Amino acid sequence: MDTSQRVWKVLTHWCDLPSEPIQPDLQLDSLDLDSLSMLEISLGLDKEFNTTIPESEIKQAKTVADLADLAETHRTPK
């Protein structure tokens, strides 16, 4: 499973999105996420990638692809 798929898995869990197809260009604003949802997504990404992505960076992400880039940048090598 690549990074985008793993990010999509987190989003589908927390945002009740359909599991397929992955939409890397999906604007996060279109999901109507509140601050609690963003915190849950942040925690989900941290757990999925065994890392800590700063909340300030998560808030700057505009698309699913942006979240995947952040996860890739911050993830801990296995």
Rank of each mutant, 00 (worst) to 15 (best):
R75F: 12
W8R: 02
N50I: 05
A61Q: 03
K59V: 08
L67P: 03
L67E: 00
D25Q: 15
T3W: 10
L28M: 07
L43Q: 08
S4V: 10
D2T: 13
D46W: 10
T73G: 04
W8H: 09
L45K: 06
I22S: 05
P77M: 09
Q60L: 12
C15M: 04
D69V: 15
K9N: 04
T52Y: 08
D25S: 14
L26F: 09
P18L: 05
K62V: 14
S4A: 11
S19E: 11
T63H: 07
E72N: 15
S56A: 15
A68F: 06
D29F: 10
A68I: 08
K59P: 00
G44L: 02
D2Y: 11
K59L: 10
S35Y: 09
E20W: 14
M38Q: 07
T73S: 12
K47L: 04
D29C: 08
D25M: 12
D46R: 12
P24Y: 13
E57K: 15
S56L: 11
E57S: 14
L39N: 02
E40K: 00
S37T: 02
Q5E: 14
E48G: 09
W14N: 01
L67D: 00
K59F: 04
D25C: 09
S4W: 08
D66Y: 13
S56K: 14
N50W: 08
V7D: 00
R6S: 02
E72W: 15
H74I: 03
L70M: 02
P21S: 03
L28G: 04
T52N: 14
E57D: 10
L11N: 02
S35T: 06
E55G: 10
K78E: 12
I41S: 00
M1Y: 12
L70A: 09
L67S: 02
D34F: 02
P77F: 11
K9C: 02
C15L: 04
A61K: 09
S4I: 11
C15I: 01
A65V: 10
K62N: 03
D29A: 12
N50F: 11
L43M: 13
P21R: 05
L36S: 03
H74Y: 15
A71E: 00
P21D: 04
T73E: 06
D29V: 13
P54Y: 13
P24H: 11
L67K: 02
V64K: 04
K59C: 06
S4K: 15
L26P: 04
L70E: 01
R75G: 00
D32P: 01
L17T: 01
M38K: 06
E48W: 09
Q5Y: 09
D32Y: 14
K9S: 06
L17Y: 08
T63Q: 06
W8T: 02
E48K: 13
S19D: 10
